[in-house]
Each structure stands twice: as structure tokens, then as C-alpha cells.
């Protein structure tokens, strides 16, 4: 059961952080980082299954499939950005977190531009 593993790891990490915080104040950050990476990798397998299912369904739709895969890529990127930003915040680096988020947003916008362009092209084609 994946969920039990995930919850177990989370609870253990929390205990460890509470215990270690008094002795070595720099350790909790590492623990939370490692815990985050472990949980993320565990969930990644399940997430890839969902994304693959969405991909399969997306092929049945008559829209440009690349646009739908772009959407999925954007969702994946958003996860990474959130993850990175959260770790930076945990370490008390709010500035770096906001920079990560900014970079992520820009890249998301860049990826969205082809969709926007093709949409504009389509509208111009339809209008007389």
C-alpha cells in the first residue's frame, strides 16, 4: 500500500525533525528535503500512470495532440516548481523560492505561446 508508506515516511520524518531540531538545528532541513524527494519519487510512478491515461484519451480527441501534451507538460512543470519553491521556503530562502516560481511561470508562458499563436491564426482564418 503506497499510501501507508507515504504517511509512515511523513510521520517518521516529523518525529525525526522534532527530536533532532534541539541537538542539531541544521538537520531538519536535510530531513525534510530527503523526505520530500522520497515521497515525490514514490508518487511519480502513480502520477505517470495518470498522465499516460490522459495521453491515451487525448489521442482520441480530434484536437492537435501536441497541445494536450503541452498541457500535461505544464502540469508536470508546475509540480516541480512547487516542489522546489517549497523546499527553498522550508530553508527560509523566500527569495530563491520566488525566483524559482518566476522562472517556472516564464517557461510555462513560453510553452503556452504556440497554442496562443495557433488560436489566433485560426480565428483570423475563420473571419472573412
Amino acid at each position: 500500500m503506497e499510501i501507508i508508506k507515504i504517511v509512515g515516511i511523513g510521520i517518521l520524518a516529523t518525529f525525526a525533525i522534532v527530536l533532532v531540531k534541539e541537538i542539531r538545528p541544521e538537520f531538519p532541513l536535510f530531513i525534510s528535503l530527503i523526505t520530500g524527494v522520497i515521497i515525490f519519487t514514490m508518487v511519480l510512478g502513480e502520477l505517470s500512470y495518470v498522465v499516460e491515461t490522459l495521453n491515451t484519451l487525448g489521442r482520441k480527441v480530434n484536437i492537435e495532440f501536441t497541445y494536450f501534451s503541452t498541457l500535461l507538460k505544464i502540469i508536470g512543470m508546475a509540480y516541480l516548481i512547487e516542489f522546489g519553491g517549497q523546499i527553498s521556503r522550508d530553508a527560509g530562502q523566500e527569495n530563491i523560492a520566488s525566483k524559482i516560481e518566476l522562472g517556472g511561470k516564464v517557461i510555462i508562458m513560453v510553452m503556452a505561446i504556440p497554442i496562443l499563436l495557433s488560436l489566433m491564426e485560426l480565428i483570423l482564418k475563420i473571419l472573412p
Binding site: 494536450f68 503541452t70 502540469i75 512547487e82 497554442i115 496562443l116
Partner: peptide, 16 residues
């Protein structure tokens, strides 16, 4: 994800 990036994803969804 339910962070700040959500609204950007919503934009792409709207375009789609």
C-alpha cells in the same frame, strides 16, 4: 498543484 502556478495552467486550459 494548488500553488501560484495554477492560474497559468488555467490560462492554457482556456486557450485549449
Amino acid at each position: 498543484p494548488k500553488g501560484n502556478t495554477r492560474k497559468y495552467i488555467n490560462l492554457v486550459i482556456g486557450l485549449l
